[in-house]
Write a protein that binds this DNA or RNA. Structure first.
Lengths: 218, 218
DNA sequence: TGTAATGTTTACCAATCGGTCAAATTATCA
DNA sequence: TGATAATTTGACCGATTGGTAAACATTACA
């Protein structure tokens, strides 16, 4: 008799790992486009090339699939921000953060859309992670930025809104990809649009955060 | 006998107008959170306080509701960009554009989310509008910005990505509201967050677009 | 007032939804 | 090999989906 997945022993066989991978890959395809409510197990099953009951053998509910997917993606998604180094040069730190986030928007657009969908729906499945680990990480990095401003290395600014603006501008190229392509038109919507975006955003954030000459310095 | 809505004469009674308004208001509530696929007519009917067949008397299908909603919202949504004036002062034009977009994110977050949902799903219902009227409007305003850069009024930059970045940063406060609130925490997530955002974004874009001193001017 | 058009609702439909079950198939290994 | 456990599937369930039909209620107006 088949053992329900949740009660299984901790050790997972290769085939289990492969199948779960296969399912989550398909689930990412579907959830990232239609959101949780708009996605169906049948859709995921078809993309995964498996029967619906077979999916439900590995993940007992649709929510379990979504949850597993979010958990896995959340970790890697926050990696770039963790790399933010207090000891580094602010300018190059910000520059490389923008670069990395843009690369992720280019290489992992589905992951970006998965989160965007979740946020739009009010984050019913990840609100705890937002208020917990995410807030903690951002608080920490905001403090780093604040030391930079206090040391006069970058212009005085709200560190939280700085982070928000980097998030939004970079993820925009994943989440609003259709719009970006449509507006740029066929001639400029090629692969080069990420390079163009990188150039613009680096200029914007680097120059926008340069310390301004004080009217009266003495 | 009831006449199907599509075949009705052009003149709409007050009650028709009121009911359609009431339905679209409810539809905005639902579609903006769950997207097209994730929303149900029953949900909209409940929010609107009407029976499902009654909704379908005014809009024959779920798609008709969505389409009517998009059409109505799209117009007002693009208003701020239209106000972009070539004759005006670039700095104040950009500043007030950011202000207006932020006000819209604050006052009409559902409209913002409705579009965001549509974009995430690949804009299956509005792709024509994107490639047509939207692209045309952005092209026009990009040309305005280009004249500013050529006149040396603002730093040289890609006008399209400038517009994208203003869109993304401002709409972020509507679309990712949950995340913003969670990260800011209870103490800073009050109504003041829009003022903080405005201050930061104005600084970022104004300073980031200031003409830089050329190393060798002569 | 009467009557025809407009508006609303109850009951219902076929299709699809998330999920279960038991039988069938395949892998594991003594 | 055989037997046991793991995996896969077709058939199916009740609930929900988008949408319809027709009876009923209300309004507009001559």
């Amino acid at each position: 008799m088949a053992i329900p997945r949740a009660a299984r022993t901790q050790r997972r066989t290769r085939i289990q790992e492969a199948k779960e991978e296969q399912i989550l890959e398909a689930a990412l395809d579907v959830f990232s486009v239609s959101g949780f409510r708009g996605s169906t197990i049948d859709q995921i099953a078809e993309v995964a090339g498996m029967s619906k009951p077979n999916l439900l053998y590995y993940f007992r509910t649709k929510e379990a699939m979504h949850r597993a997917l979010i958990d896995r993606v959340l970790f890697t998604w926050l990696e770039p921000l963790k790399a933010f180094d207090a000891e580094g040069n602010p300018e190059s730190e910000i520059r490389s953060y923008i670069r990395r986030k843009l690369e992720m928007a280019r290489d992992f657009p589905r992951e970006s859309r998965l989160f965007a969908n979740e946020m739009l729906q009010g984050a019913p499945h990840v609100e705890d992670e937002l208020k917990g680990p995410l807030k903690q990480l951002v608080d920490e990095k905001a403090e780093v930025i604040r030391t930079w401003t206090k040391a006069g290395k970058i212009a005085k600014c709200d560190p939280y809104h700085l982070i928000f603006s980097i998030w939004s501008t970079t993820q925009h190229y994943a989440d609003f990809d259709v719009q970006v392509r449509a507006v740029l038109g066929q001639e400029h919507a090629g692969a080069g649009r990420f390079e163009d975006a990188a150039r613009f955003l680096e200029q914007l954030f680097i120059d926008g955060l340069k310390v301004k000459p004080v009217p009266d310095a003495s």
